[in-house]
Design a protein around this nucleic acid. Structure first.
Lengths: 192, 192
DNA sequence: GTCTATATAAAGATAGAC
DNA sequence: GTCTATCTTTATATAGAC
C-alpha cells in the first residue's frame, strides 16, 4: 500500500481538491475521478476513507509549507523584507488554501483529536514563522513598532486573500501585489 | 409565506450557519434545528429548497453589508482613518463570513447565474467601498501611495482574518487589533 | 490494483394528515 | 404552520470477481 504511482496520484488529487474546496464540498468520487480511477478503487489506497485521506493530505500540505517557509526565511538572510517576500513567493507557488474555512468549516466536520492536531500544525507551520521573522528583525535593532503577532496575522491574511483572488481581477502578478502589500506594512511599522 | 415570525427565524438561522460554515457543510436539518422546527417544515418557508434559501440569505447579508458600510463611511466624514475604522467596526458587528470560501467552494456548488450575481454583489458591497474611500482621500490631497485596489483588498482580507480568529488567540479586542492594522497600512502608504 | 455490484447511511425534497 | 411518513438521490463504504 505504502508507495505506488497510483497512490501518489490519489494523494495529489486529494491535496488539490481538499485545499481548494474543503472537506465537505469534495466527494470521494471527485478525488477518484481526478486521479483517474473508480471511486471504489480509492479505498485500496486510502483504507481509512475520506476522513483519513483528508487528515493525511492536510498534514502533508502543512509539513511541506513548514519546510518551504523555513527555506524562504533562510534564503532571505537577515533582511526582513527579503524574508517576507520569500515567504510570499513560496505560498504563491503552492495550491491556494483557506485557513478560515479550515478553522470554521472543515475542522468541525472531522474527529476532534485530528482537528486539534491539524490546527496546531497549521499555526506552527504558517503563522509562527512570520511572527518570528518580525521579532528577529526587531531584535536586530530594526524599528518595527506595533503588536507583531497581530501584524503577522494580518500579513498572512493578505497573502491568502491575494492567492485566491480570481485571475480576472489581476492587473499585475500576484507576487508583485504581495510584495507591495508587505512593503506597505513594513513602511507603516517604521513610520508610526 | 412572505412574512412571519417563524420564517424570520429560519432566515436568521440560515444566515448564521451558511455565513459561518458554507453551503456544503450546512444541512437543511441543521438550519431547521437551529430555527426550532422539523426539517420538513422548512420547505414551507423556503419553497426553493436549500439552494434558494442560500441565495436569499446571502443576498440579504450582502445587502445589509452594503448599507452598513455606506453608513460607516458617511459617519467618518472626510477622515479616511475614521472611515476605515468605521468599516472595521461594522464588519466586526456582523456574523463572520469567509469570502475566500464563498468564491472557491460555495459558488461552484450552486447555479452559475446565482453565483455570478452573488459574486458581483459581494464585490460591490464590500470591496468597492474601501477602494472608494482610499481614492477619495487621495483626491482630497492626502498622500496615499500605491495601488489602491490592491491595498483595499489587503485591508479587507485582514479584517476577515481577524474576524474569524478564535477567541483563544485574542489578547485585545478585535476592534483594537483591526484599528492597528489599518493604521499601519495608512502610515505605510504615506511613508514610502 | 482496478473494476462491478451492492450495502448503508445521510441528505434533499414532497405528500398529506392535523 | 408543523408534523409524520415516504421518496429519491447522492455519498461513503465494503465484498468479491478479475
Amino acid at each position: 500500500m505504502s508507495h505506488s504511482e497510483a497512490r501518489e496520484r490519489v494523494l495529489q488529487a486529494a491535496e488539490r481538491l481538499f485545499a481548494e474546496r474543503g472537506y465537505t464540498a469534495v466527494t470521494v468520487k471527485d478525488i477518484a475521478a481526478a486521479a483517474g480511477i473508480h471511486h471504489a478503487s480509492l479505498y485500496h489506497h486510502a483504507p481509512d476513507g475520506k476522513e483519513g485521506l483528508f487528515v493525511e493530505v492536510m498534514t502533508r500540505i502543512l509539513e511541506r509549507h513548514r519546510a518551504g517557509i523555513a527555506d524562504a526565511v533562510g534564503a532571505g538572510g537577515e533582511d526582513v523584507r527579503a524574508q517576507l517576500h520569500g515567504i510570499a513567493a513560496w505560498m504563491l507557488s503552492q495550491p491556494p488554501m483557506d485557513m478560515i474555512r479550515m478553522a470554521l468549516s472543515d475542522m468541525p466536520a472531522i474527529d476532534a483529536a485530528s482537528a486539534n492536531m491539524l490546527a496546531a500544525l497549521a499555526f506552527e507551520a504558517m503563522i509562527v514563522p512570520i511572527v518570528r521573522v518580525l521579532y528577529d528583525a526587531r531584535g536586530r535593532g530594526e524599528l518595527l513598532q506595533g503588536d507583531l503577532g497581530n501584524i503577522a496575522g494580518g500579513i498572512f491574511s493578505m497573502l491568502q486573500g491575494l492567492h485566491t483572488l480570481p485571475e480576472a481581477y489581476l492587473e499585475r502578478s500576484r507576487q508583485e501585489m504581495a510584495n507591495e502589500l508587505i512593503d506597505v506594512m513594513l513602511a507603516g511599522m517604521k513610520a508610526r
